[in-house]
Design a binder for these strands. Structure first.
Lengths: 127, 127
DNA sequence: TCTTAAAATAAGAATCGTTACTAATATTTT
DNA sequence: AAAATATTAGTAACGATTCTTATTTTAAGA
């Protein structure tokens, strides 16, 4: 990648994101990376999360509740937001390519893609 | 609605939202309502937009780009965000009820619903 | 290895969207 | 009309994110 240099901090952010199944916020990434690099700054975390998301190495999830979350798995997949505990879980389902076709019908622009977020009660909260 | 009183300001917000096909932000609602009521405050706009959204009289759209937008049409429908001009357009497509079933397969929680946002180039920007 | 230019950093200030507070005003009830 | 209660304008405060600046790291070349 042109003009991008390695940095320990970015590597640590990437490592943390890939080590968890949670979908942490920038703040959570910050506190966890700080366990190994006690003086990374929050700005560094934000800057690198943005960079990694733009490069397509991680996913950014905007769930509409406060802060964005990030996912170390960049392969497109769908997410579920629990309205009980606010946790975000991965869903095992195939890409819904057909809905882009449905959206394109009768629309005079170009549909390039979509984001979907499911909501409800997670396994723990449904009790 | 118990404990809710009429107010000219809320009515003006509602009127404006119903008069436009755009999907304005709180700030845009504010500047437009101010044309008729020059001293409504931004706080009043936010408070009423939240109230109306909770009552189900309007829709709140979280597109992940800066601020939330609002739609005077409360009937569930899908939206398109242009990555050229950032405009949000309505799409004419039926509710995708089946995707909740797909999501529920292999998921041990309860899927209550979903939000979808399509993106691409709007009719103007595709040229 | 030493030098050097470009990129990344820590720390903190600044900005943006939004919410909370408060005293005054508008709406509804009696 | 008076009392009760919701709503308001104005402003302070807030959380999330971005920006600024001086310093440190990285990587490429001599």
């Amino acid at each position: 990648m042109a003009g991008v240099k390695f940095s320990r901090q970015r590597q640590a952010i990437m490592d943390y994101l890939c080590s968890t199944k949670e979908h942490p916020t920038a703040e959570t990434v910050y506190t966890n990376v700080r366990l190994h690099y006690p003086n990374v700054s929050l700005g560094t975390v934000y800057r690198n999360l943005n960079l990694l998301a733009e490069e397509g190495e991680i996913l950014r999830l905007t769930c509409g509740d406060g802060s964005d979350r990030f996912d170390g798995n960049p392969k497109p997949h769908y997410h579920f937001l629990c309205n009980g505990c606010q946790r975000v879980l991965d869903l095992a389902m195939e890409p819904l390519n057909h809905i882009d076709i449905l959206a394109a019908a009768g629309f005079d622009g170009i549909i390039e893609g979509h984001t979907v977020l499911f909501h409800g009660k997670c396994p723990d909260c449904k009790k």
